[in-house]
């Protein structure tokens, strides 16, 4: 399969990338690792006229502690996040979720900013990020702004990112030794999840239970008022709208959401006790 023809530009700075987006508007698409976009382009489901390759922009790959938060550059590749010592110590759910993406070759190419901007409801890292909270830092013609994680993913391939903005950084709270879990249900080793659940510090996010990754708010509210794990987990699918495909019908996805939420919460509370 061969992508449709396009013009290729390779900006050296975020400002140049934004300028290219301003110039070409809807015709332009950003590419970094390309492991979400290129498959779509090969199927001609995406046919951008201009491809803006941001993978060579320096200083977009880092993980560092800044106050109460961990700041991660959008260009950080999944394998880098997976192996990063700061991330493992400060926000361990993220390197674990990174290790669950695809296979080693995919993790060598895919970037955090890419998976965040792509907004596939079944993606591992956005699910973990949504459970963590924090914000996505984006840069446009008017400078930088911060979008809360809970307001970033709007639907299938749809985000709060404007047409002329670039994701430059992700900021999440440091969770340290707090309990966490990422439960992913797949048919085969490196598949996308049929359903996945991320849990950390009483916050729960679900993959593949709606058009975008979503928080299990009914579960969170139940936990906050002191409900048992079993009771809270039983509400995990409330307010979701899972789809039907060859792997699972909506009812089965709802069952998985409740089951995996219970497992995730049990694991997270156990891990917290062990670490304390």
């Amino acid at each position: 399969m061969i992508p449709g023809a396009f013009e290729y530009v390779r900006p050296g700075t975020v400002e140049e990338a934004v300028a290219a987006l301003v110039e070409h508007g809807d015709d332009a698409k950003l590419i970094a690792g390309g492991h979400s976009l290129l498959p779509l382009m090969k199927l001609r489901l995406a046919m951008p006229a201009v491809l803006v390759d941001i993978s060579r922009i320096p200083d977009l790959s880092y993980v560092r502690v800044e106050g109460d938060e961990v700041a991660i550059g959008a260009g950080t590749r999944h394998f880098e996040l997976e192996k990063d010592d700061v991330a493992r110590a400060e926000v361990p759910i993220l390197p674990y979720a990174a290790s669950q993406v695809g296979d080693p070759q995919v993790r060598h190419r895919g970037t955090l900013g890419g998976t965040v901007a792509h907004s596939d409801p079944a993606s591992d890292l956005p699910t973990a990020l949504l459970a963590l909270g924090g914000s996505v830092v984006v840069q446009g013609p008017g400078g930088r702004r911060s979008i809360p994680m809970t307001e970033f993913w709007l639907g299938f391939y749809e985000t709060a990112l404007a047409e002329d903005e670039v994701v430059v950084e992700v900021r999440v709270p440091r969770t340290g030794s707090a309990g966490w879990a990422y439960e992913k249900f797949t048919r085969r080793a490196n598949d996308w999840p049929i359903v996945a659940v991320a849990a950390v510090e009483g916050r729960v996010a679900l993959a593949n239970m709606a058009g975008a990754v979503v928080r299990a708010t009914a579960t969170e509210e139940a936990l906050a008022r002191g409900a048992s794990i079993a009771e809270a987990a039983g509400l995990a699918d409330e307010g979701t709208s899972p789809s039907s495909d060859m792997h699972a019908d909506p009812e089965y996805r709802r069952h998985l959401a409740r089951l995996l939420t219970r497992r995730a919460l049990e694991k997270a509370s156990g891990a917290g006790a062990a670490a304390a």
């Binding site: 399969m1 390309g34 492991h35 290129l38 498959p39 070759q105 060598h108 190419r109």
Partner: peptide, 23 residues
Amino acid sequence: DTTSCGACTVIVDGLSVKSCTVL
């Protein structure tokens, strides 16, 4: 040709990658 099978794996700058999904 869909990043699944790995038959096209090569090493680029020290890292294994699937060359059907790299320009």
